[in-house]
Amino acid sequence: MSKYAPAYLATIFATVVVCGLLAFGFNAAVDPMWYFGGNKLGTVNYAFNERLSKTNRFLADPERYDCLIFGDSRVTLLPEDKIEGYRCFNFAFSAGKAEEAVAFARYVGARGFKPRLVIMGVPAAAFRERIGGVNIPPFIKEGGAPKSPFLTYLSLDAVSMSKQTLFGVSPLDRVYDRNFNCNVAPGAPAYDPRVPLRDLMAGKFNAPQRVRFYDDMRKIFPDAELVGYVPPISAWAIKSYDDAGWLGDYVHVLHAASEKFDRFLDYGVPSALTIDTANTYDGTHYSEPANAAVARSLLSGGLPDTLNVKALSSRQMGDIYRQRLGSYNSELRAGLAD
């Protein structure tokens, strides 16, 4: 062996260590996976993997919270700090399903977390005849810990995510601020009712048996108040369901879900909120002011034209939907005009 070999190997080792430390330091400062409180070098936090990053954020200080919010991407926009009287953590994530919410609830419940309040977004799409597959991380299924940040942040993938956070565009059409409030990403388009919602007619609403997942949530957190709500959806979407003859099933599955909750409010019924195209960029994801209004009213009976579903029969609920469509007929027609 050459007499220079030890020095050469030592130099390589030192270089690797220094590069690793630099990568870890950079990633820890930007924190794309939310282990350490999020981005310290910028003003936004991008959502690369909400199922992992939200778990990391929650586990960092679970005693801070007494309320959980579950749902899909629409529910991520519900501001956790606007639920008066509670310290809520928004555990909603993209394409979130009730089965996944139950898995995450069971995971935190097994760690001794006992919320006073659980809020669940319940869209009718959860009861289509076919829905996409569930995505539950292995560590959630197994009850283990997430991957250590000391491993995650030594990778080039993490460096790439950190660079994208600082200099690139959001991987989703939503971004989180420094306080982890979710906002519509800059540059979102204006909503045009003539453009059908994505997957609007992806399947009929004929799987009411999935309400069993809300029974599971009740079993996991028996002492919590369980509140459900239907997130806002464009009045033009509701018109499409009525035109297709699907509105009866749509109302039926939501009414069936309401029976599993202590309170259940429907913000998706045609209303001043859902007929105003300025409140949404795509007809299903609603603006920060709209979601703030939902959050502030969620425990006080809703907005003036929100439906308290538990006070209605399924037939009464359907009648109100059709009455509202009739009352907004001129606005609906105008929105579809060239």
Rank of each mutant, 00 (worst) to 15 (best):
Y35G: 00
V169G: 09
V253W: 11
E142A: 08
L172K: 15
L247W: 14
T76Y: 01
S287W: 08
G42M: 08
S287N: 13
E100Q: 13
P138D: 15
G245E: 09
P186N: 03
R130M: 03
L247Q: 06
S53D: 10
K260P: 03
A158K: 06
G144Y: 08
G283Y: 05
G248T: 12
E99K: 14
L307D: 03
L68Q: 02
C182D: 14
L172T: 12
L21F: 06
A98E: 04
P270V: 08
V102K: 04
A185T: 11
L59Q: 04
D215I: 11
G283I: 05
L154E: 03
A237Q: 10
Y65N: 04
A237H: 12
A207T: 05
H252K: 11
N49I: 06
F213R: 02
Y107M: 06
V16F: 10
L68G: 09
A237G: 03
P32M: 00
I131K: 13
M217V: 15
D243V: 01
A311N: 06
M201Q: 07
Q209L: 04
G203P: 07
S160C: 01
A101T: 06
I320K: 01
H252F: 09
T76E: 15
Y281K: 15
Y107R: 01
I69V: 11
S94E: 15
M120W: 09
P6E: 07
A257G: 00
W236R: 03
K204D: 15
T306F: 02
H255I: 13
V75A: 01
E331N: 10
D66I: 10
N183W: 15
H252I: 00
G38H: 09
G96M: 12
T55P: 01
V16K: 06
V108F: 07
F26L: 10
V16Y: 12
V294Y: 05
S313Y: 04
V269R: 03
P115F: 06
Y65R: 07
